[in-house]
Amino acid sequence: MKSTLKKLGFALLLAAATASFASFATADEPDDGLVKGANAALKGKKVAFVPIAMGFDLTEAWAAGLKQDAALYGYELTIRDPNWSVDAGAQAITQLIAEKPDVLVIHPPEIQAYTRLVQRANAAGIPVVTMNLKSGANGDAFIGADWYDIAVKQTNAVVKLCGKDSGKSGKIAVMQGVLTNPTSQYGIQAIQDVLKNHPDVQIVSNQAADWDASKAHAIATTVLKANPDLCAFIGMWDNMDVGVAAAIKEAGKTGQVYVVSSGGGNQASACDNIASGAFTTYISYDAKGQARDLMMTVRSLLEVKPESAGVHTEALYTPLKTITKDTLYTGACWSLPDVQKYGP
């Protein structure tokens, strides 16, 4: 009850603050020669966002950032949720191209899925921003992780944990997500490249669980039984890797079999799991930071519309953060409810 009151109070305070900011912005802010023009350039513009799906930490964090800016600067934000369906996503983008938004933000589920649509949007003069998962054509900006780099960091961590000086078997397993995703396309290449120099570490199982925790659980359970001396799992997404961690826990091998995961650095799926020992090492691409990058990129594209869309692609690779029990500080992760409430 008390916490509800507290939340309510805070919400009121926030509303008041926003209101005062708005009035401040519109009423008699002195023109410093830039701010009024910049604000006017944003007002009434249309921004569209087509994620893979809403309802999970990454897309919710990005959307929270865009929503905040939309409220603040008065641009209109449309989110079309294809809910994991590539076809629905393509349909949404096709329609958006006909509606001509001022910026189109996409989050492609697969490398090739939206390539042609991005080209078509650019041809129609709509600037496109690609989020986190690279597409064949990325439009005017790409904001996201370098999947090769992540996998290199993960493999290096595994080599350190399981390599020849560790006293472990050197047997590792890879848990992929969806095979046509850049995570797999570039990640597997990186793992193989790193392991080339470390013959002491070998992959005994390499399977795909389609981002599904229960499928990962089933696969991991069997892999553990088949390889009792397994040293570590490389997982490609935290939301799926919890299934692997649960399987290890059931086998009573927590602490003996390592899980090296990666993800957006959400408190619930990253830091909590590191703290509990479910994950050993975690490579975070900080979705909260990506949200800020996205906000800025959209603003900049709205302020200065590129003369011809899609000619230059700005690449904003997200700085990666390695989280282990030793580097687990307050603020290493971000909390989704907080981001949704207070913005990124």
């Binding site: 369906s85 590539v86 899925a113 939206y114 042609r116």
Partner: peptide, 12 residues
């Protein structure tokens, strides 16, 4: 139309 070879094509 799409020139895309996604694993999700035609699902459902």
């Amino acid at each position: 139309r799409l020139n895309a070879a996604g694993s999700d094509t035609g699902v459902g």
